Amino acid sequence: MTITKEEILKAFHFRHATKEFDPSKTISDEDFKFILETGRLSPSSFSSEPWKFVVVQNEQLLNKIKSSSYGAASKLPEASHFVIILSRTPRDMRYDSAYQREQQSKAVPKERLSRHLEIFEEFQRNDFKLLDHERFLTDWAIKQTYIPLANMMTAAALIGIDTCPIEGFNIEKINQLLEEEGLLEDGHFTISVMLAFGYRKKEPGPRIRLPFDDVVKWVK
């Protein structure tokens, strides 16, 4: 099965940060699993896969999130599905962590693993200076979670489903809430971003983007 360039661009024009969802419409299990699978299959630096997708369906937890996140408050009552994207913390993102050693051993043949881990250390220690501060490792991991975020939004748009990425929350408060719910796995994860899914209640206004030539620079 093929998809045309025109169909892909149509999906990008269709997609917008939906502010109001139609509460009478629900995404099918088949469609939502498809969307999540596009997130799971997303690429990550050094095959680190520093994410987890928490699909929140518990009404009590949704209400707690609603009261703790101004960005989610207006979406949660009407959205069909709500996902919290978690990011792994430095304890799992260091090149020499147990998690990364396991990940790298799955991605690289045994005979090349030792050299690969040396390159991984060089990348973190000297190339990107990620070991200079724990925050750098955290930010590196969180940046990668935006790859599956974008892929899931695009996949949803391709099948006519709306989304809204949400950063409108206090990180410490949401992390505390998620920790109390046992979702951060004893400090192995932190909140990255939230994503609401559903069907738009009304058509959006005109899309505003910079002109193509202002965004793209050709260097010959």
Rank of each mutant, 00 (worst) to 15 (best):
T4V: 06
T4K: 10
K5T: 10
E7L: 07
E7D: 11
I8C: 07
L9D: 05
R15G: 05
S24H: 12
K25S: 09
T26E: 15
S28W: 02
E30C: 11
T38V: 11
L41A: 06
S42E: 00
S42P: 04
S42M: 03
F53Q: 14
V55S: 01
Q57I: 12
E59C: 09
L62N: 12
L62R: 13
N63R: 10
I65T: 09
S69W: 05
G71R: 05
A72L: 08
A73T: 11
P77V: 11
F82H: 03
I84D: 04
S87G: 11
R91F: 00
R91K: 10
R91P: 01
M93S: 06
R94A: 05
Y95R: 13
Y99L: 09
R101E: 12
E102R: 15
E102V: 14
Q104K: 12
K106A: 14
V108H: 10
P109I: 15
R112P: 14
L113R: 14
S114C: 11
H116L: 13
H116D: 13
F123G: 13
D127M: 14
D127W: 12
L137Y: 02
W140S: 11
A141W: 05
A141E: 05
I142T: 06
I147E: 03
P148E: 06
P148Y: 02
A157F: 00
L158S: 04
I159F: 05
I166M: 07
G168T: 00
I171M: 10
I171Q: 08
E172A: 06
K173V: 08
L177V: 06
E180W: 03
G187T: 01
F189Q: 01
I191M: 09
S192T: 11
M194Q: 07
K201I: 08
E203W: 00
R207V: 08
R209S: 00
V216K: 02
K217R: 11
W218R: 15
V219E: 13
